[in-house]
């Protein structure tokens, strides 16, 4: 549980790749480490969201409800992944449930801090954009695959 460890972890995350270590330290300092047990939810689809999580250790599934009240896993997230940023970026309820598959260690960044940082450091905003575009592209591709299958 050392701040410096967190900084090293953050450096490995694509979103923060280009950000200098002093700012990473600020992010680490203003965020909190959160430990989840297996099968605990990081957040639940439809809830109000006010923080994003960076996964430091362990694995989690991203689940969404289908029509029939059952959940399907649409993705897995693992070390160095960022989840939950949609809800804090655009003020919509959580679009999916994220549940720990194993013991999970995360760094929780609250909405306020996230916004403060993004507005203060434009290079971070750029990285966020890049990451989101990348994901959009990935989702589109998946959608395409799915439509072809059905």
């Amino acid at each position: 549980m050392d701040l410096q460890q967190d900084v090293d972890l953050l450096r490995n995350i694509p979103l923060f790749r280009n950000i200098d270590s002093r700012k990473l330290k600020l992010i680490a300092f203003t965020s909190q480490r959160l430990q989840f047990k297996a099968n605990e939810n990081l957040f639940v689809q439809g809830d109000y969201g006010d923080s994003a999580f960076i996964i430091i250790e362990g694995e989690a599934s991203v689940l969404i409800y289908t029509n029939s009240d059952t959940q399907i896993e649409i993705a897995k997230v693992k070390k160095n992944d960022l989840v939950g940023e949609i809800a804090i970026l655009c003020d919509v309820p959580r679009t999916a449930t994220v549940r720990a598959k194993t013991e999970l260690l995360t760094l929780e960044i609250t909405k306020e801090i996230f916004f403060q940082l993004v507005t203060q450091f434009p290079e971070m905003a750029l990285e966020v954009m890049r990451e989101l575009a990348f994901r959009l592209e990935k989702t589109n591709r998946r959608l395409q695959e799915l439509t072809i299958k059905t």
């Binding site: 002093r22 700012k23 330290k25 600020l26 300092f29 203003t30 306020e112 801090i113 403060q116 203060q120």
Partner: peptide
């Protein structure tokens, strides 16, 4: 000083952290 000297002095993070 390392963490905060970059931020403008009225920045909210000062007060909180």
């Amino acid at each position: 000083i390392e963490l905060f000297s970059d931020l403008p002095s009225e920045h909210e993070l000062y007060q909180r952290f």
